[in-house]
């Protein structure tokens, strides 16, 4: 079967090795990105690409693979950012330690909210997570003495390593390159494992999954917490990169957008989030030229992509590949049917 290469979520030994190789190649190419980027603005965008990739890829685990619509990823992102940022800015805690504490806090809050919420199905889970996000937004806004409220949290110091601050776009790029690369590898390891296969059954049918010995609730909870932890890491990176945090960055609108980007990239697909993050990072920048029309064009393109490529960019690529294969190999493609 040749068509298993790009996009097909199938995982077998060879394809597992193949995907890991693709990841290595992609990351090797990214390594030289700062050298060829025309200016710092582009490198800065690349850092946001990494942060968005962590967010979307981790959310994809919950939505794409477990089939659970979570609308509070923005809140976990924010909790990571605020926990890490407040500790460093107000309590002089080392950003590294702060990041670890932030991970602990996001993981723990995911556990607390997940324990009751993940027993709910479909829209009810969506609502519960949306409600949690709304509560977190209120807290970010109103705990002014800690968070700075609507004006934002200022004075967050950068990460520093061996006495050198990770402040410039280029140094932060390499830092984000390492963190995101490791996380992407771990995510692939997860997908390509016993646990991962168990997790991937949940999107089809929890009933069938439990009839095959999979404790669906436990799986959902573990994935939910793991995904929140990653969002927390993204939050710490964000806050120590731009040295600032503002509540609207983590509103439920962000959560909704992240879900949309999982879909636009192609859910339940390992490479989907790469496209999702690319679009989420680049398109708003490209649309700047449209000024007030920017948001409209964004919404319209979203509608069009989903209308014409319901399986996202990855689905579109697979479709295009199918057309090309069929165009060049007449009849042969039908033999297997």
């Amino acid at each position: 079967m040749t068509d298993a290469a790009i996009g097909a979520p199938t995982v077998t030994t060879q394809e597992g090795a193949h995907t890991r190789r693709m990841l290595a190649i992609l990351w090797a190419i990214l390594l030289i990105f700062p050298l060829i980027a025309p200016n710092n603005y582009i490198i800065n965008l690349a850092v946001f690409f990494f942060i968005n990739l962590i967010l979307i890829a981790s959310l994809n685990l919950v939505i794409g693979y477990c089939g659970q619509i979570s609308l509070c990823h923005g809140a976990f992102f924010g909790l990571g950012a605020y926990a890490s940022g407040v500790l460093a800015a107000k309590f002089d805690v080392s950003p590294w330690l702060g990041a670890v504490v932030a991970m602990g806090m996001t993981g723990f809050s995911a556990l607390l909210i997940g324990l009751p919420a993940l027993r709910l199905r479909g829209h009810y889970l969506a609502m519960a997570t949306l409600g949690f996000n709304a509560i977190m937004t209120v807290l970010f806004n109103e705990m002014i003495s800690l968070t700075g409220g609507p004006n934002g949290l200022t004075g967050v110091p950068p990460f520093s390593l061996f006495g050198v601050d990770i402040v410039t776009d280029t140094t932060f790029f390499y830092f984000a390159w390492v963190v995101t690369g490791v996380l992407m590898l771990l995510i692939y390891n997860l997908i390509d494992s016993r646990f991962g296969r168990g997790m991937r059954t949940l999107a089809t049918s929890e009933i069938a999954a439990s009839s095959l010995g999979i404790d669906s609730f436990r799986y959902k909870l573990i994935v939910f917490v793991a995904s929140a932890l990653m969002a927390g890491i993204a939050g710490s990176m964000y806050v120590h990169f731009i040295n600032f945090a503002s509540p609207e960055t983590f509103s439920f609108f962000t959560s909704v957008f992240l879900v949309v980007m999982v879909a636009v990239g192609g859910w339940g697909n390992y490479w989907g989030p790469v496209f999702g993050a690319l679009i989420y990072t680049a398109v708003p920048e490209l649309l700047r030229a449209f000024k007030d029309l920017e948001i409209f064009v964004f919404g319209l393109s979203m509608v069009l992509v989903l209308l014409f490529f319901p399986d996202g960019v990855v689905g579109g690529i697979r479709l295009a590949k199918g057309w090309i294969l069929r165009a060049y190999t007449p009849k042969a493609g039908d033999a297997g049917r």
Binding site: V260, D292, E294, I295, F296, G299, L300, M302, V303, P310
Partner: peptide, 22 residues
């Protein structure tokens, strides 16, 4: 599918809001 309609309405909401603004 329900999920696709839901996602499309998000896009629709964005379009509606920005058109009203314009």
């Amino acid at each position: 599918t329900p999920i696709l309609i839901t996602l499309i309405t998000i896009g629709l909401a964005i379009c509606t809001k920005s058109l009203v603004m314009l």
